[in-house]
Protein backbone atom coordinates (compact mmCIF):
# COMPACT_ATOMS: atom_id res chain seq x y z
CA UNK A 1 0.00 0.00 0.00
CA UNK A 2 1.29 3.42 -0.90
CA UNK A 3 -0.54 5.12 1.97
CA UNK A 4 2.13 6.13 4.47
CA UNK A 5 1.79 4.68 7.98
CA UNK A 6 0.55 7.15 10.64
CA UNK A 7 3.60 6.27 12.69
CA UNK A 8 6.23 3.57 12.65
CA UNK A 9 7.27 1.48 15.67
CA UNK A 10 10.91 2.38 15.10
CA UNK A 11 12.72 4.82 12.83
CA UNK A 12 15.80 2.97 11.66
CA UNK A 13 18.24 5.16 9.83
CA UNK A 14 21.75 6.48 9.44
CA UNK A 15 23.64 9.33 11.02
CA UNK A 16 26.42 10.58 8.76
CA UNK A 17 29.25 12.60 10.25
CA UNK A 18 30.42 15.18 7.71
CA UNK A 19 33.24 16.14 10.08
CA UNK A 20 34.74 12.66 10.02
CA UNK A 21 34.07 11.47 6.47
CA UNK A 22 37.32 11.38 4.51
CA UNK A 23 35.69 10.75 1.14
CA UNK A 24 37.29 7.34 0.53
CA UNK A 25 34.15 5.91 -1.14
CA UNK A 26 34.54 2.61 0.75
CA UNK A 27 30.82 2.81 1.67
CA UNK A 28 29.96 3.16 -2.03
CA UNK A 29 31.93 0.05 -2.91
CA UNK A 30 30.66 -2.08 -0.02
CA UNK A 31 27.07 -0.96 -0.74
CA UNK A 32 27.36 -1.91 -4.37
CA UNK A 33 29.05 -5.20 -3.47
CA UNK A 34 26.46 -6.30 -0.94
CA UNK A 35 23.40 -5.12 -2.78
CA UNK A 36 24.37 -6.47 -6.16
CA UNK A 37 24.72 -9.95 -4.71
CA UNK A 38 21.81 -10.06 -2.30
CA UNK A 39 18.24 -8.71 -2.12
CA UNK A 40 16.59 -7.95 -5.47
CA UNK A 41 17.93 -7.36 -8.95
CA UNK A 42 21.70 -6.81 -9.28
CA UNK A 43 23.00 -3.25 -9.58
CA UNK A 44 24.00 -3.29 -13.22
CA UNK A 45 26.76 -1.34 -14.96
CA UNK A 46 26.64 -0.21 -18.56
CA UNK A 47 29.88 -0.03 -20.53
CA UNK A 48 31.89 -0.44 -17.29
CA UNK A 49 35.31 -0.69 -18.96
CA UNK A 50 34.51 1.46 -21.99
CA UNK A 51 34.58 5.15 -22.79
CA UNK A 52 31.26 6.05 -21.18
CA UNK A 53 30.82 3.98 -18.02
CA UNK A 54 27.61 4.31 -16.02
CA UNK A 55 25.86 2.21 -13.41
CA UNK A 56 23.33 1.92 -10.62
CA UNK A 57 24.45 2.98 -7.15
CA UNK A 58 22.40 3.23 -3.96
CA UNK A 59 24.95 5.40 -2.24
CA UNK A 60 27.16 8.08 -3.79
CA UNK A 61 29.72 10.40 -2.24
CA UNK A 62 29.73 14.00 -3.44
CA UNK A 63 32.39 16.56 -2.50
CA UNK A 64 31.62 20.19 -1.78
CA UNK A 65 33.80 23.21 -1.21
CA UNK A 66 32.62 25.70 1.40
CA UNK A 67 34.26 29.10 1.12
CA UNK A 68 33.81 31.25 4.25
CA UNK A 69 33.89 35.06 4.16
CA UNK A 70 37.44 34.93 5.44
CA UNK A 71 40.02 32.19 5.58
CA UNK A 72 40.64 29.06 3.63
CA UNK A 73 37.96 27.01 1.91
CA UNK A 74 36.91 23.74 3.49
CA UNK A 75 36.36 20.54 1.52
CA UNK A 76 33.46 18.38 2.71
CA UNK A 77 32.81 14.87 1.51
CA UNK A 78 29.14 14.18 1.40
CA UNK A 79 27.76 10.62 1.21
CA UNK A 80 24.16 10.52 0.05
CA UNK A 81 21.69 7.64 0.04
CA UNK A 82 17.98 7.18 0.80
CA UNK A 83 17.00 9.15 3.92
CA UNK A 84 14.00 6.86 4.67
CA UNK A 85 11.78 9.93 5.07
CA UNK A 86 8.82 9.85 7.45
CA UNK A 87 6.76 11.71 4.86
CA UNK A 88 8.24 9.93 1.86
CA UNK A 89 6.90 11.51 -1.36
CA UNK A 90 8.31 8.61 -3.41
CA UNK A 91 5.90 6.16 -1.76
CA UNK A 92 2.61 7.98 -2.27
CA UNK A 93 3.18 8.65 -5.99
CA UNK A 94 3.74 4.96 -6.82
CA UNK A 95 0.82 3.75 -8.95
CA UNK A 96 1.29 0.03 -8.35
CA UNK A 97 1.96 -0.26 -4.63
CA UNK A 98 5.52 -1.44 -5.28
CA UNK A 99 6.92 1.32 -3.03
CA UNK A 100 6.08 1.14 0.63
CA UNK A 101 7.22 2.25 4.07
CA UNK A 102 7.39 -0.47 6.71
CA UNK A 103 5.35 0.05 9.87
CA UNK A 104 7.73 -1.95 12.07
CA UNK A 105 10.97 -0.05 11.38
CA UNK A 106 10.19 2.76 8.90
CA UNK A 107 12.40 1.40 6.12
CA UNK A 108 11.28 2.50 2.63
CA UNK A 109 11.43 -0.43 0.21
CA UNK A 110 10.50 -1.36 -3.36
CA UNK A 111 8.78 -4.63 -4.16
CA UNK A 112 10.57 -5.18 -7.44
CA UNK A 113 8.10 -7.75 -8.74
CA UNK A 114 5.35 -5.08 -8.68
CA UNK A 115 7.47 -2.21 -10.07
CA UNK A 116 6.53 -1.15 -13.62
CA UNK A 117 9.58 1.10 -13.92
CA UNK A 118 7.62 4.31 -14.55
CA UNK A 119 10.22 6.35 -12.69
CA UNK A 120 7.72 8.62 -10.97
CA UNK A 121 9.13 7.85 -7.49
CA UNK A 122 12.56 9.04 -8.62
CA UNK A 123 10.94 12.27 -9.84
CA UNK A 124 9.28 12.75 -6.46
CA UNK A 125 12.51 12.24 -4.47
CA UNK A 126 14.40 15.52 -3.97
CA UNK A 127 17.58 13.72 -2.94
CA UNK A 128 18.24 11.56 -5.99
CA UNK A 129 18.08 8.48 -3.79
CA UNK A 130 16.32 6.30 -6.33
CA UNK A 131 17.87 5.08 -9.54
CA UNK A 132 16.26 3.07 -12.32
CA UNK A 133 18.36 0.05 -13.18
CA UNK A 134 19.03 0.22 -16.90
CA UNK A 135 19.33 -3.55 -17.30
CA UNK A 136 16.43 -4.64 -15.10
CA UNK A 137 13.96 -1.79 -15.69
CA UNK A 138 13.01 -1.56 -12.03
CA UNK A 139 13.66 1.10 -9.42
CA UNK A 140 16.56 0.50 -7.05
CA UNK A 141 17.12 2.19 -3.71
CA UNK A 142 18.87 1.79 -0.37
CA UNK A 143 17.20 -0.95 1.69
CA UNK A 144 19.16 -0.04 4.81
CA UNK A 145 20.56 -3.53 4.20
CA UNK A 146 17.34 -5.07 5.45
CA UNK A 147 18.86 -8.45 4.55
CA UNK A 148 21.79 -7.85 6.93
CA UNK A 149 20.34 -6.07 9.94
CA UNK A 150 17.90 -8.90 10.80
CA UNK A 151 20.07 -11.71 9.44
CA UNK A 152 20.72 -14.21 12.27
CA UNK A 153 23.11 -16.14 10.02
CA UNK A 154 25.58 -13.26 10.25
CA UNK A 155 27.80 -12.60 13.29
CA UNK A 156 26.20 -9.92 15.44
CA UNK A 157 28.75 -7.21 14.56
CA UNK A 158 27.84 -7.62 10.89
CA UNK A 159 24.13 -6.95 11.46
CA UNK A 160 24.41 -3.32 10.38
CA UNK A 161 24.21 -1.82 6.88
CA UNK A 162 27.25 -2.66 4.74
CA UNK A 163 28.23 1.01 4.46
CA UNK A 164 28.31 1.41 8.25
CA UNK A 165 30.23 -1.83 8.74
CA UNK A 166 32.91 -0.86 6.26
CA UNK A 167 33.46 2.84 7.02
CA UNK A 168 37.12 3.09 8.12
CA UNK A 169 36.63 6.56 9.60
CA UNK A 170 33.62 5.73 11.78
CA UNK A 171 31.66 8.43 9.97
CA UNK A 172 28.49 6.37 9.61
CA UNK A 173 26.21 5.32 12.44
CA UNK A 174 23.12 3.12 12.37
CA UNK A 175 20.28 2.94 14.88
CA UNK A 176 16.74 3.83 15.91
CA UNK A 177 16.24 7.57 15.52
CA UNK A 178 12.74 7.26 16.96
CA UNK A 179 14.15 6.32 20.39
CA UNK A 180 15.52 9.44 22.13
CA UNK A 181 17.72 7.20 24.33
CA UNK A 182 19.49 5.46 21.43
CA UNK A 183 23.16 6.21 20.73
CA UNK A 184 22.34 7.73 17.35
CA UNK A 185 19.66 10.02 18.81
CA UNK A 186 22.09 11.21 21.50
CA UNK A 187 24.74 11.83 18.85
CA UNK A 188 22.31 13.89 16.79
CA UNK A 189 21.32 15.86 19.90
CA UNK A 190 24.92 16.49 20.92
CA UNK A 191 26.26 17.47 17.50
CA UNK A 192 23.27 19.38 16.14
CA UNK A 193 22.31 16.82 13.49
CA UNK A 194 20.45 18.34 10.56
CA UNK A 195 17.93 17.47 7.83
CA UNK A 196 18.67 17.91 4.13
CA UNK A 197 16.21 20.21 2.30
CA UNK A 198 13.90 20.61 5.32
CA UNK A 199 11.74 22.96 3.22
CA UNK A 200 10.69 20.02 1.06
CA UNK A 201 8.68 18.69 4.03
CA UNK A 202 9.87 15.11 3.67
CA UNK A 203 10.95 14.74 7.32
CA UNK A 204 14.06 12.64 6.64
CA UNK A 205 14.97 10.03 9.25
CA UNK A 206 18.68 10.06 8.33
CA UNK A 207 20.58 12.95 9.89
CA UNK A 208 23.81 14.70 8.93
CA UNK A 209 26.27 15.97 11.54
CA UNK A 210 27.73 19.30 10.39
CA UNK A 211 31.50 19.71 10.16
CA UNK A 212 33.01 21.21 13.30
CA UNK A 213 34.70 24.61 12.99
CA UNK A 214 38.40 24.41 12.21
CA UNK A 215 40.84 24.86 15.12
CA UNK A 216 42.40 28.30 15.57
CA UNK A 217 45.99 28.51 16.81
CA UNK A 218 46.23 31.31 19.36
CA UNK A 219 49.72 30.58 20.88
CA UNK A 220 52.43 33.20 20.62
CA UNK A 221 54.83 32.25 17.85
CA UNK A 222 58.30 32.87 19.33
CA UNK A 223 60.05 32.43 15.98
CA UNK A 224 57.93 34.94 14.11
CA UNK A 225 60.21 37.99 14.65
CA UNK A 226 63.19 36.06 13.27
CA UNK A 227 61.28 35.11 10.13
CA UNK A 228 60.38 38.69 9.14
CA UNK A 229 61.76 39.70 5.73
CA UNK A 230 65.22 41.15 6.42
CA UNK A 231 65.53 43.62 3.55
CA UNK A 232 62.57 45.81 2.61
CA UNK A 233 64.48 47.44 -0.24
CA UNK A 234 66.87 45.30 -2.27
CA UNK A 235 70.45 46.59 -2.33
CA UNK A 236 73.54 46.02 -4.46
CA UNK A 237 73.28 44.20 -7.76
CA UNK A 238 69.70 42.98 -7.10
CA UNK A 239 68.73 46.54 -6.21
CA UNK A 240 70.26 47.87 -9.44
CA UNK A 241 68.49 45.10 -11.44
CA UNK A 242 65.18 45.89 -9.72
CA UNK A 243 65.46 49.62 -10.48
CA UNK A 244 66.58 49.06 -14.08
CA UNK A 245 63.78 46.61 -14.82
CA UNK A 246 61.32 49.00 -13.19
CA UNK A 247 62.37 51.76 -15.65
CA UNK A 248 61.89 49.63 -18.77
Amino acid sequence: MTTLPEKTDRKLGLVIDLDTCVGCHACVVSCKGWNTENYGAPLSDQDPYGADPSGTFLNRVHSYEVQPEEGAAQLIHFPKSCLHCEDAPCVTVCPTGASYKRVEDGIVLVNESACIGCGLCAWACPYGAREMDAAEGVMKKCTLCVDRIYNVNLPEEDRVPACVRTCPAGARHFGDLGDPESDVSKLVEERGGMDLMPEQGTKPVNKYLPPRPKDELDQVDVLAPYLQPVAEEPKGFIGWLDRTLEKL
Binding site: H62, A122, G128, L196
Partner: peptide
Protein backbone atom coordinates in the same frame (compact mmCIF):
# COMPACT_ATOMS: atom_id res chain seq x y z
CA UNK B 1 22.66 23.99 -2.64
CA UNK B 2 22.93 25.45 0.88
CA UNK B 3 19.66 23.85 2.05
CA UNK B 4 20.39 20.69 0.07
CA UNK B 5 23.68 20.11 1.89
CA UNK B 6 22.97 21.99 5.11
CA UNK B 7 26.42 23.54 4.71
CA UNK B 8 25.34 27.11 3.96
CA UNK B 9 25.94 28.33 7.53
CA UNK B 10 29.69 28.68 7.24
CA UNK B 11 30.14 29.98 3.73
CA UNK B 12 29.38 29.67 0.06
CA UNK B 13 28.86 26.06 -1.07
CA UNK B 14 30.13 24.86 -4.43
CA UNK B 15 30.08 21.40 -6.00
CA UNK B 16 33.75 20.43 -6.00
CA UNK B 17 33.53 16.94 -7.43
CA UNK B 18 30.78 14.63 -8.64
CA UNK B 19 30.50 11.17 -7.07
CA UNK B 20 31.67 9.51 -10.27
CA UNK B 21 33.46 10.70 -13.38
CA UNK B 22 30.85 9.03 -15.60
CA UNK B 23 27.21 9.93 -16.05
CA UNK B 24 24.30 8.27 -14.27
CA UNK B 25 20.52 7.86 -14.27
CA UNK B 26 19.99 11.01 -12.20
Amino acid sequence: LATATGLGGTGKVRSFEHPHTGSNYL
